[in-house]
């Protein structure tokens, strides 16, 4: 678990090291914002999963809406 977190942090650090210097040099402010928002979402999601935190699951949300529709369709056609 600890190792996974360290690896995830390292991976994100590598991403930042890979992209951010160029953006800073070229003064891409908007891009930097977008970049760090995405990084933050990614970090929360991945660390949350490693620690098994109860994060909202978008896919489950979609499923909750769509599955009844499908069941209705299935009942209609069989």
């Amino acid at each position: 678990m600890a190792l996974s977190i360290v690896l995830v942090l390292l991976a994100f650090a590598a991403m930042i090291a890979y992209e951010v210097p160029r953006m800073l040099r070229e003064k891409m402010r908007r891009e930097l914002w977008a970049f760090f928002v995405l990084i933050a979402i990614g970090l929360v999601l991945s660390i949350g999963q490693i620690l098994k935190l109860p994060l909202p699951n978008v896919t489950r949300g979609i499923e909750a809406v769509v599955r009844p529709v499908y069941k209705a369709l299935e009942a209609m056609l069989t």
Binding site: M15, E19, M28, F35, L38, G42, L45, Q49, T59
Partner: peptide, 23 residues
């Protein structure tokens, strides 16, 4: 309205992977 999509590749990939693992 960003200038380049390339900077988003890695973070977007990370978010995508995390969402997939969670789903």
């Amino acid at each position: 309205n960003l200038r380049s999509y390339r900077i988003l590749i890695l973070p977007a990939g990370a978010v995508m992977t995390a969402l997939g693992m969670q789903a």
